[in-house]
Each structure stands twice: as structure tokens, then as C-alpha cells.
């Protein structure tokens, strides 16, 4: 991230209340992840130790230090989605995209396809539980997801069956 962009983000926060998480959230949304250089630049600019920022970024599941693919697919693993078959949707997605996810050593779930086109992540709940199971692609929610409807949704994002 450019220094100027970062400065613009920092300038949005005129009070220390909610500032650090707010800035990190804006970086995450704009870049899809939090680049190391940006984090180090931020540490200097807002005078917060890098060890503390790193601690925050690894604590909250919304932040990621790894770059993501072109499209980010987030599957809800909330209770309502779970009892309505979210695990099956995730399995189907993994087999369609030929990826194999497991929780990594930092406790987060994030897998990117080899061609870097899709990253699959897990969320707790989008508050659209009535349409369970729910998944989100690049910010758009899809309700009533099931293994059969997945291919059609993915095709909208440039996926082709092998």
C-alpha cells in the first residue's frame, strides 16, 4: 500500500477510540490482506509497537497476513448454517476448486487455489441465518447454498469445470 493511501486511512480516525482496529480493517478491506510493509509503516506513523500490531493482526480472524486470490469465497460455519449442511457445501467447494483446507498453525482457515483465482475462508455468521447455508463471494451473499447450485455461482466468477 502506498504511503499516501495509508496516511489517508489514518486521517479518517480523529480519535483514539476504535482507531487501531479501524485502520487495520480499512487496510484489510482495501488490500485483501495486511502487507508486512504497511504494518511496519503504520507502526511508525501511529507510534504503536510492531509487536503489538502483529499481536492484534494474528488475534482477530478478520485480518490476514497472507495475500488472497482474485476472488474471496467465505463460507459461513455458524450454527444455523452448520445444522443445514454447511460442511457439505465446504466439501463440495473444496472438490470443485481442487483445494484441501485445514486450520493452519495460526488457527485461521484460508486456502487459495493454485491458479490464485479463489481463496476460501470461513466465517462465523453473516446474520443471514434464515437463508442457511450462506456463502459470500467478494462481499455478495448467496443464500440457500448447496453442492448442486455451487457450480452456477462459481461460473459467474470465471470458474470452469475441469
Amino acid at each position: 500500500m502506498e504511503e499516501k493511501t495509508l496516511e489517508e486511512i489514518i486521517a479518517r480516525y480523529d480519535s483514539p477510540t476504535g482507531k487501531v482496529l479501524g485502520i487495520l480493517g480499512d487496510i484489510q478491506r482495501s488490500e485483501g490482506y495486511i502487507p508486512r510493509e504497511t504494518l511496519e509503516m503504520l507502526s511508525v506513523k501511529i507510534d504503536v509497537r510492531i509487536s503489538q500490531l502483529y499481536s492484534i493482526v494474528t488475534f482477530y480472524s478478520f485480518f490476514s497476513l497472507k495475500p488472497v486470490g482474485e476472488h474471496v469465497i467465505t463460507i459461513c460455519m455458524g450454527t444455523a448454517c452448520h445444522v443445514r449442511g454447511a460442511v457439505g457445501v465446504l466439501d463440495a467447494l473444496e472438490s470443485l476448486l481442487d483445494i484441501h483446507g485445514d486450520t493452519t498453525e495460526d488457527g485461521k482457515f484460508s486456502v487459495t487455489t493454485k491458479d490464485n483465482k479463489f481463496t476460501v475462508e470461513i466465517a462465523r455468521c453473516f446474520g443471514a441465518c434464515s437463508m442457511a447455508p450462506v456463502l459470500q463471494i467478494d462481499g455478495t451473499l448467496y443464500g440457500y447454498a448447496n453442492p448442486d447450485t455451487l457450480p452456477a455461482i462459481l461460473e459467474q466468477y470465471g470458474w470452469r469445470a475441469a
Binding site: G18, Y60, F62
Partner: peptide, 10 residues
């Protein structure tokens, strides 16, 4: 009133 956002932590 101000708004502060969380970042995914129950």
C-alpha cells in the same frame, strides 16, 4: 455517537 468496528472475535 461514534462507531467502532470489531474484527472477528466472539
Amino acid at each position: 455517537i461514534r462507531i467502532a468496528t470489531g474484527a472477528g472475535a466472539f
